[in-house]
Simulated assay, not measured.
Amino acid sequence: MTQTLPQALLLQARTRGTKTALRYKRLGIWQARSWSEVATDVSRLAAALQQLGFSLGDDLLIISQARAEALLLALAAQWLGGSVTLLDPELDNRPLLVRLKPAFVLAEALDSVQQIRDIDQPPRVLLYLDGRGLNAADDHGLSAYAELFTGITADAPAPVAEPAATAFVFHCASEGSSRPLSHGQLLEGARKLVARENLSAGEEALAARVFAASGQARYLLAPWLSAGFCLNFPEALATRDTDRRELGPTLVLGTRESYARLEHWARERLPLPGTLSHRLYRWAMAPDAQLFRRWIGYWLIRRPLLDVLGMSRLRVPLLVGPALSQESAAFFGALGIHPGSWQEPSVLREPAQAPAHLISHSV
Rank of each mutant, 00 (worst) to 15 (best):
E204T: 01
I119K: 00
V105I: 02
W79E: 08
I119A: 04
I29Y: 09
F292N: 08
L45I: 13
G81T: 09
R218M: 10
H183L: 11
L60Q: 06
E108C: 00
R179H: 10
D59K: 03
R94P: 05
A238F: 00
G82L: 03
Y298Q: 10
S112F: 00
D41V: 08
L187C: 05
R244S: 10
A208P: 06
I152N: 04
V105P: 00
H278S: 09
A70N: 05
P159S: 06
I296M: 12
Q353E: 09
E204H: 13
A173Q: 11
S277H: 04
L253M: 11
P304H: 03
Q343Y: 07
V105A: 06
F332A: 08
W283H: 06
A286L: 07
G189A: 12
L45D: 01
S341N: 15
G248P: 08
R282K: 11
A205T: 01
N135I: 12
V194E: 10
L71R: 05
L206W: 01
F332Y: 07
Q12W: 00
D118R: 14
D241V: 11
V84I: 01
S325I: 02
V125W: 07
G141R: 02
A158W: 00
R349C: 05
L306W: 04
P159M: 03
Q114E: 14
G333H: 07
L9D: 01
S312Q: 15
A164S: 13
T242L: 14
R99Q: 11
H338Q: 12
E257I: 05
R282Q: 15
N198M: 13
A21Q: 05
W35K: 03
S341F: 04
T4P: 15
P322E: 12
I116Q: 03
G53L: 07
S112Q: 15
W342M: 12
P249E: 09
E90F: 00
H140G: 12
G184M: 06
N198K: 14
R124Y: 12
R303C: 01
W224R: 03
H278T: 00
A21D: 13
R179L: 06
A77F: 00
L148R: 08
P234I: 05
V252W: 02
S200Y: 09
G310H: 02
L253Y: 00
A167C: 02
I29C: 11
A74T: 03
W283Y: 08
L91M: 06
G336K: 02
R196F: 13
E147M: 06
Y259F: 01
F292L: 14
L56T: 15
E268D: 02
L186Q: 07
Q114Y: 14
F168W: 09
A213G: 15
